[in-house]
Design a binder for these strands. Structure first.
Lengths: 222, 222, 222, 222
DNA sequence: AATGAATGAGACTTCATTCAT
DNA sequence: TATGAATGAAGTCTCATTCAT
């Protein structure tokens, strides 16, 4: 196998990039497959999604999937893991200056895209039936989101910006509202039809965020 | 078909009351089947539920299901319809005296049972793929719940009990939170673990309802 | 379900033959399928036999096989069980008067048909990989054959017809020879080609039986 | 292909000895692969053995197998050929002085190792479906063993050591017993359990050989 | 109307073989 | 020549639906 012997910087060496190139290729394939799987799963749900369709979406033969994932369920786990990673990363990067910004950001940042919202619902369903999805998605991602929100609220209370509500309840209520909105957004036509602004302006995401943030900050009562 | 031929009062006759009895019988069968289907669907999801399992749960043969429903999907639609009816009925009966009671009731009354929560999630998933489920569940039930909540809030505002928030936004936010909680309850272990009461008492549903109602009424801000 | 109500011998009764007929039908199907499976397995071996081919041989749809057997392996077990039953039955019925007849019968009666010989080899192969085949075929059938032969030899020794050889060894040697012959018969062309009778007569099964019996009875040595 | 260009004694040259070395190398590879294939085939059978597993056992990549053998079946033929060669060689070297030794050697020398016994059964199965296996194994090896045994018996008869039995029958009966024993050995537990020595000593291969030889030499009859 | 055996389309998965590197 | 990722044909098995009883 002489191809691997390279004369680099004055000495012969075993070209490490050979290994790396293959590894990079494999990693690219995994990503390619998971991306296709995420798309099909979010569109069809787990059971209705077929490996044939996922393979087609990834522009690969069906058998190739099984060089990277042991079975269909493993694909779902992979998607869940990927997604949990993204969420975790997004959390660690988020920074909010003031209270309004904090709540608005919480409302706005989660489940922004249709695929994310669909996957959220998918994982919720599958978590019952799959230990790994439960672990990777619910425990790692959702629990982390809630915990993170809880800490932000605690800090706000300590800083005297919020009244001393129970941070656990508050964090869970806000998270629940976000999750619920993400479900509702999927059915915009029916569930948002009745909504109208008093000032007659069209409804925008920003206005929505403001309104909800206002509600959570100041409450309903006069 | 011997049921039609009755020996009554000394002569054979085509009993006209048979039709009515048969109709009642048929209605009872439908109910029996839908109840079984709801149980199995909520436990397994639509695709994983098998007609065999539903038939077994209904204590009937598989073939019998097809005397009352044209196919498996029709069963789901039936369950959605049934459920939408129940929700509608529940709404029309609900009455709340004061503001605290209103919010607490909203929080507490929806998705109280595991099966309801699961069916909610199921319908959400299936609504994408099924026009009928969308219509019967999302449009008829969910939209009605939101609309109803909106009206209650409007009345509270008019009565001067609430500050003049946008009732549409408020109703949807509360509904979203309820939906989100119903999802969260399914994953109690992981998502409720961190929660602790300051006074050290154990967490109860009532306390939770109070806390969330307080949050929605008075807001986060000091 | 009025069809089941029969007026028999002066009273109404739940027709028990309804159950029986169905059971008979089911038993017939099992037999039909096992017969087809035995034929295909003996021709192709376990792995090369396809459920499609077995179903075709049984003149049934592929799916129907699975109403009677849980999987392909279960079919093999069924065939092995069936075969073991036959062998056991055959043993319990066999009777031999004198020593020559005994040995000749042992030689002649086992593995007479091609399918039996093939199945014997098949079970031998599969017994390594399948606990059930091992149990049903090797333990129940083969061990029983050997044990039975051992007893016949013991009786012959006690009756003074045989010299006091070890009955266990003798029974196993004869059984081994029978097994070996059954394998050889499969390759008649190559392995029997060289064989010629001194008297020029053609080779027959009877002559063969006689010769082998003579060998086992009187030995090689002068 | 850098292997062909050699820098020898001051100049680049197409080394003519390379061909020989390459041939030796290729032969070594073939042996290495066949050895691995024999091991895997004997353990799993032909169909259940995978090229992946054979390649792993040979410490090579799957693709490499196809540089030396055209397909999986060709591997089986190679193993059969190899084995037939070994048998032929073993026969030509075997020498027995007296009658007891002859029979004992026949009994003892074939199928001594588990792998040999398994391969024997494998080839028997596959010979039906594969002309080449039939030719190489059955015709070349088995027929040769029988023929060789036949000759030895003929010599013994001519030398007056054996009574004038039919040598063809005798050779085939002994061979059949050996084959049968080789099958039985695979199922030692069930088929050897009942066996006990009168003198109470444990059962050994030597004692077994003696007993069987005695049986074949002196027969059963008193 | 009730039954449940029969059906066969279609799903997931394996694996011998090819081929670019 | 060696590699192993890619391929896709083919296998087993499930399950919604039909239909004779």
């Amino acid at each position: 196998m002489c191809e691997r012997l390279l004369y680099v910087k004055g000495e012969f060496t075993l070209d490490s990039s050979t290994v790396t190139r293959r590894e990079r290729r494999a990693e690219a394939r995994r990503t390619q497959i998971l991306s296709a799987a995420a798309a099909v799963f979010s569109r069809k749900g787990y059971e209705r999604a077929t490996t044939r369709e996922i393979a087609a979406a990834a522009d690969l033969a069906e058998g190739t999937l099984y060089n990277y994932f042991t079975n269909k369920r493993d694909l779902l786990i992979g998607v869940a893991q990927n997604y949990a990673d993204e969420v975790t990363q997004a959390i660690s990067q988020s920074q909010a200056e003031d209270l309004d910004g904090l709540v608005a950001q919480l409302i706005a940042n989660r489940f922004r895209h249709r695929q994310e919202r669909r996957l959220f619902m998918l994982f919720m369903q599958e978590a019952h039936l799959n230990q790994d999805v439960y672990q990777y998605y619910v425990q790692e991602a959702l629990a982390r989101i809630i915990h993170n929100t809880e800490q932000l609220i605690e800090q706000a209370i300590e800083a005297g910006k919020m009244r001393p509500v129970d941070p656990g309840i508050a964090a869970r209520t806000i998270s629940a509202a976000i999750m619920g909105f993400s479900v509702m957004f999927e059915f915009s036509d029916a569930l948002w039809d009745g909504l109208k602004r008093k000032d007659g302006h069209p409804i925008t995401a920003d206005w929505l965020g403001e309104q909800v943030a206002d509600l959570f900050l100041h409450g309903l009562e006069k």
